[in-house]
């Protein structure tokens, strides 16, 4: 083949073009390119989004000191994260861990402490019994465990939190108040709902996503009910006595509530019309509150 005039320049495609090409490869293959040369050893991690399926794997150590990584998803790891060695991910904004095992309880807190700009954290189906989530920057947090496994608990220390979703996990408390929290989605025992309402004074939206088990009226009305809670959505209403009691309490005490939406779980017309009638007759502290059944 005839030699082109610009051949010399081409012997090295610029880093950003190589990264662009590597971004179309599954992470597993793009990471394998580190074998090519010293320069390529670092190129694959300039890809901004990584998806890693771990399967009996140890993560490469350089992954935890990547300066450019913005979005990291880790799935199905047996060994997972190292508990020793430096962790510094100065650009990481979104971290999603799903079924990842940790070498020890320190591994996860250590990972978080190395993410100075993290905004979104999603933890699903984990193998740790007690989760300590401490981050001065996260704004959105989702923690979801196996169904009906209330052995797992989570402690949250995240003053910037705006949106929290907890599902099938016990809430073990927080050392700070959630002053910025405006949206709360819960699939947990009622006692945890109350615990959360008490520290989220500025909450505006409350969504209850799974069937509750019991209900106990709190001694004191949480501040958010008096000042800010505007929307309540109940995703599963099973017509049980304690559910009626909870709805009655919320309607009676939520001072600025604008809308309560209730999804009725039985299609029997008679039962439905009874529930609608009964709930509609409850006293509403906020006169403007609208009820919606579906």
């Amino acid at each position: 083949m005839e030699k082109r005039s610009s051949m010399d320049r081409l012997s090295a495609l610029p880093d950003d073009i190589i990264c662009h090409i590597l971004s179309f490869l599954p992470t597993k293959i793009s990471a394998a390119t580190s074998i090519l040369s010293r320069r390529w050893g670092f190129l694959w991690i300039c890809v901004k989004k990584l998806d890693l399926w771990l399967e009996h794997a140890t993560l490469p150590r350089c992954l935890f000191t990547c300066k450019t990584l913005v979005d990291l998803t880790l799935y199905d790891g047996c060994v997972g994260m190292p508990s020793s060695g430096p962790v510094f991910l100065p650009s990481l904004k979104k971290l999603h861990v799903c079924r990842v095992k940790y070498q020890d309880v320190e591994a996860f807190p250590q990972l978080l402490s190395g993410c100075p700009v993290l905004e979104e954290l999603i933890i699903r189906y984990n193998y740790l019994d007690c989760f300590n989530i401490s981050s001065p920057t996260i704004k959105r947090l989702t923690v979801q465990c196996e169904r009906n496994n209330f052995d797992s608990s989570v402690k949250i220390n995240a003053p910037e939190l705006r949106h929290l979703q907890l599902r099938d996990i016990a809430f073990a408390g927080s050392i700070v108040k959630f002053d910025n929290l405006t949206k709360l989605e819960l699939g947990v025992e009622f006692c945890f709902l109350m615990k959360l309402l008490e520290i989220a004074d500025n909450l505006e939206v409350l969504i209850l996503i799974v069937k509750p088990h019991n209900w106990m009226e709190p001694k004191q009305v949480p501040t958010c009910l008096l000042l800010h809670l505007r929307t309540i959505k109940i995703d599963q209403f099973w017509f049980e006595g304690h559910e009626f009691n909870m709805v009655r309490y919320l309607l009676k005490n939520a001072q600025v509530l604008e809308r309560m939406g209730i999804h009725l779980m039985y299609s029997d017309l008679k039962a439905k019309s009874y529930a609608v009638k009964r709930i509609s007759s409850f006293k509403r502290r906020s006169e403007a509150c609208e009820l919606a059944f579906h």
Partner: peptide, 22 residues
């Protein structure tokens, strides 16, 4: 890609070992 392999054989073996998962 006209890549010059600048690893020593030992270094290359080590990378293959460390990044075995890939």
């Amino acid at each position: 890609f006209d890549i010059q392999n600048d690893y020593t054989p030992e270094a290359e073996a080590e990378i293959r070992r460390l990044d075995a998962w890939a």
